[in-house]
Design a protein around this nucleic acid. Structure first.
Length: 200
DNA sequence: TGGCTGATGCGA
DNA sequence: CGCATCAGCCAA
């Protein structure tokens, strides 16, 4: 329905944006085929003062430089040499914030998603987990830097409301190396959804 | 529960 | 230039 536009992404509080993204619809159009799903799980990463962020303490590399651009772009990177993880860059230029999308609830194009994942029938793990959902949606590192305002990857507000009390807040996954920042409750999940990555 | 996987970005 | 690192998945 209503496509999310630039101002949504350029807000300066990535923790709020990460929560606002819950219930929003993520769509991709790859080779003319549309797949989509509703976001059920996110994590916030802040460039300034968050050691768990790729761009913490102003660290800038060939891979993460896209995080320093202004909001509304995709940041896709390869994890463990296998998994393509999809992030949404937020905030203004030189504020390297991003939201990692960890899980979605499939909507359109389920048959295509199954094919991409070599699965026969839909199971809850079809799109739960950041690597899984990228694969199901056809997102790869080739899309890193891609604007989210176009017609390849974009988000819509379909009117799904996620009240604050329905949001589970917990520490982020796999960031033990970040010291005290590992305890920040910046992982957000929709309470009761069956389409979440395994709780830890 | 552990093995696999390979680009990334360090230190040398 | 080489190798340790790693924000995960899948087959058992």
């Amino acid at each position: 329905m209503a496509k999310l536009l630039k101002p949504f992404y350029t807000g300066d509080d990535v923790v709020l944006i990460a929560q606002a993204l819950l219930g929003k619809k993520l769509l991709t159009q790859i080779n003319g085929v549309i797949t989509s799903g509703y976001i059920t799980e996110t994590e916030a990463y802040r460039g300034w003062g968050d050691k768990a962020c790729h761009a913490s303490m102003g660290k800038k590399t060939e891979r993460n430089k896209i995080m320093y651009e202004d909001g509304g772009r995709a940041y896709v990177y390869l994890c463990y040499g296998i998994h393509h993880l999809f992030n949404i860059v937020t905030n203004s230029k030189d504020n390297a914030d991003a939201v990692l999308i960890r899980a979605i609830e499939p909507a359109e194009g389920v048959a295509v998603m199954l094919k991409r994942r070599n699965m026969k029938e839909p199971k809850y793990n079809l799109t739960s987990g950041p690597g899984s959902l990228s694969k199901a949606m056809g997102i790869s590192i080739n899309h890193s830097g891609q604007a989210l305002i176009g017609d390849t990857i974009w988000l819509e507000d379909d009117g799904r409301d996620v009240p604050t009390k329905q949001i589970i807040k917990s520490p982020r996954v796999g960031v033990a190396y970040a010291g005290a920042d590992a305890k920040l409750p910046w992982r957000f999940r929709i309470k009761g959804s069956k389409w979440l990555s395994p709780a830890k």
